[in-house]
Amino acid sequence: MLELRLVQGSLLKKVLESIKDLVNDANFDFSSSGFSLQSMDSSHVALVALLLKSEGFEHYRCDRNTSMGMNLGNMSKMLKCAGNDDIITIKGDDGSDTVTFMFESPTQDKIADFEMKLMDIDSEHLGIPEAEYHAIVKMPSAEFARICKDLASIGDTVVISVTKEGVKFSTRGDIGTANIVLRQNTTVDKPEDATVIEMNEPVSMTFALRYMNSFTKATPLSNTVTISMSPDLPVVVEYKIAEMGYVRFYLAPKMEE
């Protein structure tokens, strides 16, 4: 028996929108402490890790650990039928090959049930090692999205360089080059507007902008984004989901031949 009631149902809608273009099918792993998802994109260059802890749910019941394979495109179609203010409940029964999404309007005058077929998914489970990162940049998520979008109109890849001067995003393409530098800025009215650079050692890495732009679909989930980099390790782009968990995207760097 599985029953999860999320008053802020829009959160689940936003989570799905942030990952559905990267991952087609994925196993959702439910346990008593919350649910998680880990999946690589089809080209095996990026990895998505999602965690939503049980504390964030108004009601959370999971009698035994269970894994449900879902097509994220289909799940997104169903969740789009929920209103932004709706309460969303996920229900499942042991051994069933379906999952039910229930949408309740805030005034309880409309209640909808959507039953979705589950699927068997073979997925390799990867251990994500704890790493000491050379540099961790925390910045407004909207600013990061703007930079990725702007640079993608010039080039295909972004070089992210962190020095004690700041963080530099650079690209080059047929029409020219672009460099955007952000300096550490903690003297802001709201903490979420700050750019904070923690640097142990300077680092410079190259990534495909196509993936970075895909990650920024998670922008509505969080006012800030954290970018953690170490040479030869996948970059971690993390959007924290207030009080509940996170969506993390890992992307392999582009290497010189």
Binding site: H44, V45, H125, L126, P129, D232, L233, P234, A252, E256
Partner: peptide, 14 residues
């Protein structure tokens, strides 16, 4: 340039 396979950065679990 080539994209480094992301698996190199992770441990494959059974």
């Amino acid at each position: 340039s080539r994209i480094q396979h992301i698996l190199e950065g992770f441990y494959l679990l059974d």
